[in-house]
Design a protein around this nucleic acid. Sequence first.
DNA 1: TAGATTGTTAATCGATTAACAATC
DNA 2: TAGATTGTTAATCGATTAACAATC
Lengths: 204, 204
Amino acid sequence: MKISNKVINRLSLYHFILDELGEEEKYISSFKIAELLAVDNSQVRKDIRSLGNCGKCRVGYDVKKLKDAIETTLGFKQTRNAFIVGAGNLGSALAKYDSFANYGLNIVAMFDSDKSKIGSYINGKPVFGLERFLELKNKFDADIAILTVPKKAAQQVTDVLVEAKIKYIWNFTPHILKAPDDVKIWNENLIGSFLQFTNNDEKN
Amino acid sequence: MKISNKVINRLSLYHFILDELGEEEKYISSFKIAELLAVDNSQVRKDIRSLGNCGKCRVGYDVKKLKDAIETTLGFKQTRNAFIVGAGNLGSALAKYDSFANYGLNIVAMFDSDKSKIGSYINGKPVFGLERFLELKNKFDADIAILTVPKKAAQQVTDVLVEAKIKYIWNFTPHILKAPDDVKIWNENLIGSFLQFTNNDEKN
DNA sequence: TAGATTGTTAATCGATTAACAATC
DNA sequence: TAGATTGTTAATCGATTAACAATC
Protein backbone atom coordinates (compact mmCIF):
# COMPACT_ATOMS: atom_id res chain seq x y z
CA MET A 1 0.00 0.00 0.00
CA LYS A 2 1.20 3.47 -0.86
CA ILE A 3 2.25 5.68 2.05
CA SER A 4 2.06 9.42 1.52
CA ASN A 5 5.01 11.74 1.94
CA LYS A 6 3.55 13.36 5.02
CA VAL A 7 3.16 9.99 6.69
CA ILE A 8 6.69 8.94 5.72
CA ASN A 9 8.03 12.13 7.21
CA ARG A 10 6.17 11.63 10.47
CA LEU A 11 7.18 7.98 10.68
CA SER A 12 10.81 9.03 10.44
CA LEU A 13 10.26 11.42 13.35
CA TYR A 14 8.63 8.64 15.37
CA HIS A 15 11.70 6.57 14.66
CA PHE A 16 13.98 9.28 16.08
CA ILE A 17 11.96 9.16 19.28
CA LEU A 18 12.05 5.38 19.54
CA ASP A 19 15.75 5.41 18.81
CA GLU A 20 16.41 7.39 21.94
CA LEU A 21 14.24 5.52 24.38
CA GLY A 22 16.23 3.61 26.93
CA GLU A 23 16.14 -0.17 27.05
CA GLU A 24 13.92 -0.02 30.10
CA GLU A 25 10.93 1.41 28.21
CA LYS A 26 9.30 -1.50 26.51
CA TYR A 27 6.08 0.21 25.40
CA ILE A 28 5.12 3.66 24.19
CA SER A 29 1.63 5.08 23.64
CA SER A 30 0.32 7.17 20.77
CA PHE A 31 -0.38 9.87 23.36
CA LYS A 32 3.26 10.08 24.36
CA ILE A 33 4.52 10.28 20.77
CA ALA A 34 1.84 12.84 19.92
CA GLU A 35 2.85 15.00 22.84
CA LEU A 36 6.55 15.01 21.94
CA LEU A 37 5.81 16.07 18.39
CA ALA A 38 2.77 18.22 19.17
CA VAL A 39 0.57 16.34 16.72
CA ASP A 40 -2.83 14.70 17.11
CA ASN A 41 -2.79 11.33 18.85
CA SER A 42 -5.26 9.69 16.49
CA GLN A 43 -3.02 10.72 13.64
CA VAL A 44 -0.14 8.87 15.28
CA ARG A 45 -2.29 5.74 15.57
CA LYS A 46 -3.38 6.04 11.98
CA ASP A 47 0.18 6.50 10.73
CA ILE A 48 1.35 3.48 12.67
CA ARG A 49 -1.61 1.47 11.44
CA SER A 50 -0.26 1.87 7.90
CA LEU A 51 2.70 -0.27 8.94
CA GLY A 52 0.46 -3.23 9.74
CA ASN A 53 -0.31 -4.85 13.03
CA CYS A 54 1.65 -3.27 15.85
CA GLY A 55 -0.24 -2.07 18.89
CA LYS A 56 -1.61 -3.58 22.04
CA CYS A 57 -4.71 -2.23 23.71
CA ARG A 58 -4.11 -0.84 27.13
CA VAL A 59 -0.30 -0.96 26.97
CA GLY A 60 0.64 0.81 23.75
CA TYR A 61 3.16 -0.10 21.10
CA ASP A 62 6.10 -2.44 21.61
CA VAL A 63 9.06 -0.11 21.06
CA LYS A 64 11.31 -2.68 19.48
CA LYS A 65 8.67 -4.06 17.16
CA LEU A 66 7.47 -0.62 16.14
CA LYS A 67 10.99 0.51 15.36
CA ASP A 68 11.52 -2.58 13.31
CA ALA A 69 8.27 -2.13 11.43
CA ILE A 70 9.21 1.45 10.51
CA GLU A 71 12.65 0.32 9.38
CA THR A 72 11.23 -2.40 7.21
CA THR A 73 8.48 -0.31 5.68
CA LEU A 74 10.63 2.70 4.94
CA GLY A 75 13.45 0.53 3.66
CA PHE A 76 16.25 1.45 6.06
CA LYS A 77 17.81 -1.88 5.42
CA GLN A 78 17.98 -1.94 1.65
CA THR A 79 20.99 0.33 1.17
CA ARG A 80 21.22 2.63 -1.81
CA ASN A 81 24.47 3.93 -3.20
CA ALA A 82 24.78 7.65 -3.85
CA PHE A 83 27.28 10.20 -5.14
CA ILE A 84 27.79 13.67 -3.76
CA VAL A 85 28.39 16.07 -6.61
CA GLY A 86 30.14 19.18 -5.34
CA ALA A 87 32.77 18.72 -2.63
CA GLY A 88 32.43 22.18 -1.09
CA ASN A 89 31.30 22.92 2.43
CA LEU A 90 27.83 21.49 2.16
CA GLY A 91 28.93 18.44 0.19
CA SER A 92 31.65 17.77 2.75
CA ALA A 93 29.21 18.22 5.61
CA LEU A 94 26.89 15.65 4.08
CA ALA A 95 29.80 13.29 3.41
CA LYS A 96 30.67 13.46 7.09
CA TYR A 97 27.10 12.86 8.21
CA ASP A 98 27.49 9.21 9.14
CA SER A 99 23.86 8.81 10.24
CA PHE A 100 22.85 8.47 6.60
CA ALA A 101 24.28 4.96 6.55
CA ASN A 102 21.88 3.90 9.33
CA TYR A 103 18.95 4.88 7.15
CA GLY A 104 20.09 3.10 4.03
CA LEU A 105 21.91 5.92 2.27
CA ASN A 106 25.44 4.89 1.39
CA ILE A 107 27.67 7.58 -0.04
CA VAL A 108 30.27 5.93 -2.22
CA ALA A 109 32.12 8.81 -3.88
CA MET A 110 32.21 12.53 -4.54
CA PHE A 111 32.81 14.70 -7.58
CA ASP A 112 34.25 18.17 -7.96
CA SER A 113 35.82 20.35 -10.62
CA ASP A 114 38.54 21.70 -8.31
CA LYS A 115 41.77 19.90 -9.28
CA SER A 116 43.22 20.37 -5.79
CA LYS A 117 40.39 18.28 -4.36
CA ILE A 118 40.44 15.52 -6.96
CA GLY A 119 42.29 12.48 -5.64
CA SER A 120 41.69 13.40 -2.00
CA TYR A 121 39.33 11.73 0.43
CA ILE A 122 36.60 13.28 2.57
CA ASN A 123 35.55 11.07 5.45
CA GLY A 124 36.88 8.15 3.45
CA LYS A 125 35.00 9.01 0.26
CA PRO A 126 37.20 9.53 -2.81
CA VAL A 127 36.81 12.75 -4.82
CA PHE A 128 36.83 12.47 -8.61
CA GLY A 129 36.63 14.87 -11.53
CA LEU A 130 33.21 15.16 -13.10
CA GLU A 131 34.48 13.92 -16.46
CA ARG A 132 34.70 10.47 -14.90
CA PHE A 133 31.06 10.48 -13.76
CA LEU A 134 29.69 8.16 -16.43
CA GLU A 135 32.50 5.67 -16.01
CA LEU A 136 32.18 5.57 -12.21
CA LYS A 137 28.39 5.52 -12.23
CA ASN A 138 28.64 2.20 -13.96
CA LYS A 139 31.40 0.93 -11.68
CA PHE A 140 29.74 1.82 -8.39
CA ASP A 141 26.14 0.79 -8.61
CA ALA A 142 24.69 4.21 -7.71
CA ASP A 143 21.53 5.85 -8.97
CA ILE A 144 21.30 8.83 -6.61
CA ALA A 145 23.19 12.12 -7.00
CA ILE A 146 23.25 14.63 -4.17
CA LEU A 147 23.76 17.99 -5.83
CA THR A 148 25.72 20.52 -3.79
CA VAL A 149 27.50 22.54 -6.47
CA PRO A 150 27.29 26.35 -6.72
CA LYS A 151 24.00 27.61 -8.14
CA LYS A 152 25.50 28.77 -11.41
CA ALA A 153 26.95 25.34 -12.18
CA ALA A 154 23.77 23.48 -11.25
CA GLN A 155 22.17 23.05 -14.67
CA GLN A 156 25.38 22.23 -16.49
CA VAL A 157 26.25 19.54 -13.96
CA THR A 158 22.68 18.22 -14.07
CA ASP A 159 23.07 17.70 -17.80
CA VAL A 160 26.06 15.45 -17.11
CA LEU A 161 24.09 13.47 -14.52
CA VAL A 162 21.16 13.06 -16.88
CA GLU A 163 23.47 11.98 -19.68
CA ALA A 164 24.81 9.26 -17.37
CA LYS A 165 21.23 8.16 -16.70
CA ILE A 166 21.13 8.96 -13.01
CA LYS A 167 17.62 8.28 -11.64
CA TYR A 168 17.39 10.50 -8.56
CA ILE A 169 18.75 14.01 -7.98
CA TRP A 170 18.60 15.45 -4.48
CA ASN A 171 18.96 19.14 -5.25
CA PHE A 172 20.48 21.33 -2.53
CA THR A 173 21.00 24.30 -4.86
CA PRO A 174 18.50 27.17 -5.11
CA HIS A 175 18.12 26.50 -8.82
CA ILE A 176 15.19 24.85 -10.59
CA LEU A 177 16.73 22.04 -12.61
CA LYS A 178 15.62 21.04 -16.09
CA ALA A 179 15.66 17.30 -16.60
CA PRO A 180 13.58 14.63 -18.36
CA ASP A 181 10.44 13.44 -16.59
CA ASP A 182 11.90 10.06 -15.70
CA VAL A 183 14.59 11.68 -13.54
CA LYS A 184 13.17 12.23 -10.09
CA ILE A 185 14.21 15.54 -8.53
CA TRP A 186 13.78 16.44 -4.87
CA ASN A 187 14.34 20.10 -4.10
CA GLU A 188 15.80 20.55 -0.65
CA ASN A 189 14.71 24.14 -0.45
CA LEU A 190 16.43 25.67 2.59
CA ILE A 191 15.25 29.14 1.71
CA GLY A 192 11.69 27.87 1.48
CA SER A 193 12.04 26.16 4.86
CA PHE A 194 13.24 29.35 6.45
CA LEU A 195 10.37 31.33 4.98
CA GLN A 196 7.75 28.81 6.07
CA PHE A 197 9.28 28.62 9.49
CA THR A 198 9.31 32.33 10.15
CA ASN A 199 6.13 33.32 8.29
CA ASN A 200 3.74 30.79 9.64
CA ASP A 201 2.65 28.91 12.72
CA GLU A 202 2.02 25.59 11.02
CA LYS A 203 4.45 22.85 11.81
CA ASN A 204 6.51 20.84 9.38
CA MET B 1 -4.33 37.00 5.00
CA LYS B 2 -2.63 33.84 6.09
CA ILE B 3 -0.63 31.95 3.49
CA SER B 4 -0.16 28.22 4.02
CA ASN B 5 3.24 26.55 4.21
CA LYS B 6 2.75 24.75 0.94
CA VAL B 7 2.00 27.99 -0.83
CA ILE B 8 4.99 29.71 0.78
CA ASN B 9 7.22 26.89 -0.37
CA ARG B 10 5.95 27.08 -3.94
CA LEU B 11 6.21 30.87 -4.02
CA SER B 12 9.88 30.56 -3.08
CA LEU B 13 10.38 28.18 -5.99
CA TYR B 14 8.63 30.61 -8.34
CA HIS B 15 11.04 33.25 -7.08
CA PHE B 16 14.03 31.09 -8.00
CA ILE B 17 12.68 30.86 -11.53
CA LEU B 18 12.04 34.59 -11.83
CA ASP B 19 15.47 35.30 -10.42
CA GLU B 20 17.11 33.56 -13.32
CA LEU B 21 15.09 34.99 -16.16
CA GLY B 22 17.11 37.34 -18.32
CA GLU B 23 16.28 41.03 -18.51
CA GLU B 24 14.74 40.49 -21.94
CA GLU B 25 11.82 38.44 -20.60
CA LYS B 26 9.34 40.93 -19.31
CA TYR B 27 6.38 38.58 -18.81
CA ILE B 28 5.92 34.97 -17.76
CA SER B 29 2.75 32.87 -17.85
CA SER B 30 1.37 30.51 -15.25
CA PHE B 31 1.73 27.77 -17.86
CA LYS B 32 5.47 28.33 -18.17
CA ILE B 33 6.04 28.29 -14.40
CA ALA B 34 3.83 25.22 -14.02
CA GLU B 35 5.78 23.39 -16.67
CA LEU B 36 9.17 24.10 -15.09
CA LEU B 37 8.01 22.81 -11.71
CA ALA B 38 5.67 20.13 -13.02
CA VAL B 39 2.70 21.48 -11.07
CA ASP B 40 -0.82 22.42 -12.12
CA ASN B 41 -1.13 25.76 -13.88
CA SER B 42 -4.27 26.83 -12.07
CA GLN B 43 -2.46 26.20 -8.81
CA VAL B 44 0.24 28.62 -9.91
CA ARG B 45 -2.40 31.25 -10.66
CA LYS B 46 -4.08 30.67 -7.32
CA ASP B 47 -0.80 30.91 -5.43
CA ILE B 48 0.09 34.14 -7.17
CA ARG B 49 -3.39 35.48 -6.56
CA SER B 50 -2.71 35.28 -2.82
CA LEU B 51 -0.09 37.99 -3.32
CA GLY B 52 -2.67 40.47 -4.56
CA ASN B 53 -3.11 41.97 -7.98
CA CYS B 54 -0.36 40.88 -10.33
CA GLY B 55 -1.40 39.42 -13.65
CA LYS B 56 -2.41 40.69 -17.03
CA CYS B 57 -4.79 38.78 -19.21
CA ARG B 58 -3.31 37.62 -22.45
CA VAL B 59 0.29 38.48 -21.59
CA GLY B 60 0.96 36.87 -18.22
CA TYR B 61 2.70 38.20 -15.15
CA ASP B 62 5.15 41.09 -15.13
CA VAL B 63 8.35 39.38 -13.98
CA LYS B 64 9.69 42.34 -12.06
CA LYS B 65 6.42 43.10 -10.31
CA LEU B 66 5.77 39.47 -9.47
CA LYS B 67 9.24 39.06 -8.01
CA ASP B 68 8.74 42.14 -5.96
CA ALA B 69 5.34 40.98 -4.71
CA ILE B 70 6.80 37.65 -3.58
CA GLU B 71 9.65 39.43 -1.84
CA THR B 72 7.31 41.78 -0.03
CA THR B 73 4.80 39.13 0.99
CA LEU B 74 7.35 36.62 2.19
CA GLY B 75 9.36 39.27 3.95
CA PHE B 76 12.71 39.01 2.12
CA LYS B 77 13.39 42.60 2.99
CA GLN B 78 12.82 42.59 6.71
CA THR B 79 16.08 40.97 7.81
CA ARG B 80 16.21 38.71 10.82
CA ASN B 81 19.33 38.07 12.82
CA ALA B 82 20.28 34.49 13.58
CA PHE B 83 22.95 32.47 15.36
CA ILE B 84 24.42 29.21 14.18
CA VAL B 85 24.95 26.93 17.14
CA GLY B 86 27.51 24.28 16.28
CA ALA B 87 30.46 25.32 14.10
CA GLY B 88 31.13 21.90 12.61
CA ASN B 89 30.86 21.01 8.95
CA LEU B 90 27.20 21.69 8.53
CA GLY B 91 27.25 24.86 10.61
CA SER B 92 30.21 26.13 8.61
CA ALA B 93 28.49 25.24 5.35
CA LEU B 94 25.44 27.26 6.35
CA ALA B 95 27.64 30.14 7.53
CA LYS B 96 29.20 30.23 4.07
CA TYR B 97 25.87 30.12 2.28
CA ASP B 98 25.66 33.78 1.38
CA SER B 99 22.31 33.45 -0.39
CA PHE B 100 20.57 33.50 2.97
CA ALA B 101 21.21 37.23 3.24
CA ASN B 102 19.22 37.84 0.03
CA TYR B 103 16.19 36.23 1.62
CA GLY B 104 16.31 38.14 4.88
CA LEU B 105 18.32 35.73 7.01
CA ASN B 106 21.34 37.43 8.52
CA ILE B 107 23.77 35.23 10.39
CA VAL B 108 25.51 37.32 12.99
CA ALA B 109 27.56 34.87 15.03
CA MET B 110 28.29 31.23 15.77
CA PHE B 111 28.73 29.16 18.90
CA ASP B 112 30.76 26.05 19.62
CA SER B 113 32.21 24.19 22.57
CA ASP B 114 35.52 23.47 20.84
CA LYS B 115 38.07 25.87 22.36
CA SER B 116 40.24 25.79 19.23
CA LYS B 117 37.36 27.27 17.24
CA ILE B 118 36.35 29.93 19.75
CA GLY B 119 37.74 33.31 18.75
CA SER B 120 38.04 32.36 15.09
CA TYR B 121 35.89 33.56 12.19
CA ILE B 122 33.99 31.53 9.63
CA ASN B 123 33.08 33.55 6.56
CA GLY B 124 33.39 36.63 8.72
CA LYS B 125 31.15 35.33 11.51
CA PRO B 126 32.78 35.20 14.95
CA VAL B 127 32.69 31.94 16.91
CA PHE B 128 31.92 32.15 20.63
CA GLY B 129 31.68 29.71 23.51
CA LEU B 130 28.16 28.67 24.40
CA GLU B 131 28.48 30.08 27.93
CA ARG B 132 28.27 33.53 26.35
CA PHE B 133 25.00 32.81 24.57
CA LEU B 134 22.70 34.74 26.86
CA GLU B 135 24.96 37.77 26.94
CA LEU B 136 25.35 37.86 23.15
CA LYS B 137 21.70 37.13 22.43
CA ASN B 138 20.93 40.40 24.11
CA LYS B 139 23.73 42.25 22.39
CA PHE B 140 22.97 41.11 18.85
CA ASP B 141 19.26 41.38 18.38
CA ALA B 142 18.74 37.75 17.29
CA ASP B 143 15.80 35.47 17.95
CA ILE B 144 16.64 32.56 15.64
CA ALA B 145 19.07 29.72 16.46
CA ILE B 146 20.18 27.33 13.74
CA LEU B 147 21.05 24.13 15.54
CA THR B 148 23.84 22.08 13.94
CA VAL B 149 25.45 20.41 16.96
CA PRO B 150 25.98 16.63 17.23
CA LYS B 151 22.83 14.70 18.03
CA LYS B 152 23.88 13.81 21.54
CA ALA B 153 24.42 17.47 22.50
CA ALA B 154 21.15 18.63 20.97
CA GLN B 155 18.88 18.66 24.00
CA GLN B 156 21.45 20.09 26.37
CA VAL B 157 22.20 22.95 24.01
CA THR B 158 18.49 23.51 23.41
CA ASP B 159 18.05 24.02 27.15
CA VAL B 160 20.58 26.85 26.98
CA LEU B 161 18.79 28.44 24.03
CA VAL B 162 15.44 28.18 25.78
CA GLU B 163 16.89 29.66 28.94
CA ALA B 164 18.05 32.64 26.89
CA LYS B 165 14.51 33.00 25.52
CA ILE B 166 15.29 32.26 21.90
CA LYS B 167 12.05 32.23 19.86
CA TYR B 168 12.88 30.08 16.85
CA ILE B 169 15.00 26.95 16.61
CA TRP B 170 15.84 25.57 13.19
CA ASN B 171 16.79 22.01 14.07
CA PHE B 172 19.20 20.23 11.72
CA THR B 173 19.89 17.39 14.15
CA PRO B 174 18.03 14.08 14.00
CA HIS B 175 16.80 14.57 17.57
CA ILE B 176 13.33 15.57 18.70
CA LEU B 177 13.85 18.58 20.94
CA LYS B 178 11.93 19.27 24.10
CA ALA B 179 11.09 22.92 24.54
CA PRO B 180 8.21 25.06 25.82
CA ASP B 181 5.29 25.63 23.47
CA ASP B 182 6.16 29.25 22.82
CA VAL B 183 9.48 28.25 21.24
CA LYS B 184 8.90 27.50 17.59
CA ILE B 185 10.86 24.51 16.30
CA TRP B 186 11.32 23.60 12.67
CA ASN B 187 12.76 20.16 12.08
CA GLU B 188 14.91 20.09 8.98
CA ASN B 189 14.65 16.36 8.65
CA LEU B 190 17.19 15.27 6.03
CA ILE B 191 16.61 11.61 6.74
CA GLY B 192 12.88 12.12 6.25
CA SER B 193 13.51 13.93 2.97
CA PHE B 194 15.63 11.09 1.70
CA LEU B 195 12.99 8.53 2.65
CA GLN B 196 10.16 10.49 1.04
CA PHE B 197 12.24 11.05 -2.04
CA THR B 198 13.15 7.43 -2.62
CA ASN B 199 9.95 5.78 -1.36
CA ASN B 200 7.39 7.80 -3.18
CA ASP B 201 6.54 9.47 -6.47
CA GLU B 202 4.93 12.56 -4.99
CA LYS B 203 6.84 15.76 -5.36
CA ASN B 204 7.95 18.07 -2.61
C1' DT C 1 -13.77 -5.35 37.23
C1' DA C 2 -12.15 -0.64 36.00
C1' DG C 3 -9.33 1.88 33.28
C1' DA C 4 -6.23 2.80 29.64
C1' DT C 5 -5.28 2.53 25.03
C1' DT C 6 -5.85 0.92 20.38
C1' DG C 7 -8.36 0.65 15.94
C1' DT C 8 -11.67 2.62 13.16
C1' DT C 9 -15.46 5.35 11.54
C1' DA C 10 -17.53 9.69 10.55
C1' DA C 11 -17.05 14.64 10.32
C1' DT C 12 -14.37 18.36 9.19
C1' DC C 13 -11.12 20.84 7.00
C1' DG C 14 -7.96 22.22 3.47
C1' DA C 15 -5.55 21.56 -0.92
C1' DT C 16 -5.64 20.34 -5.72
C1' DT C 17 -7.63 20.01 -10.17
C1' DA C 18 -10.85 21.02 -13.89
C1' DA C 19 -13.47 24.10 -16.34
C1' DC C 20 -14.65 28.27 -18.28
C1' DA C 21 -16.23 33.17 -18.37
C1' DA C 22 -13.91 37.57 -18.40
C1' DT C 23 -10.40 40.25 -20.27
C1' DC C 24 -7.24 42.61 -23.22
C1' DT D 1 -11.58 40.26 -34.34
C1' DA D 2 -9.29 35.99 -32.70
C1' DG D 3 -6.58 34.05 -29.43
C1' DA D 4 -4.13 33.69 -25.25
C1' DT D 5 -4.14 34.04 -20.56
C1' DT D 6 -5.88 35.39 -16.12
C1' DG D 7 -9.19 35.07 -12.25
C1' DT D 8 -12.50 32.40 -10.11
C1' DT D 9 -15.89 28.96 -9.21
C1' DA D 10 -17.19 24.25 -8.57
C1' DA D 11 -15.78 19.48 -8.15
C1' DT D 12 -12.67 16.37 -6.47
C1' DC D 13 -9.46 14.56 -3.66
C1' DG D 14 -6.81 13.75 0.46
C1' DA D 15 -5.44 14.81 5.20
C1' DT D 16 -6.68 15.88 9.88
C1' DT D 17 -9.49 15.73 13.86
C1' DA D 18 -13.11 14.04 16.92
C1' DA D 19 -15.45 10.45 18.89
C1' DC D 20 -16.13 6.10 20.67
C1' DA D 21 -16.66 1.00 20.56
C1' DA D 22 -13.55 -2.85 21.13
C1' DT D 23 -10.01 -4.80 23.72
C1' DC D 24 -7.05 -6.54 27.29
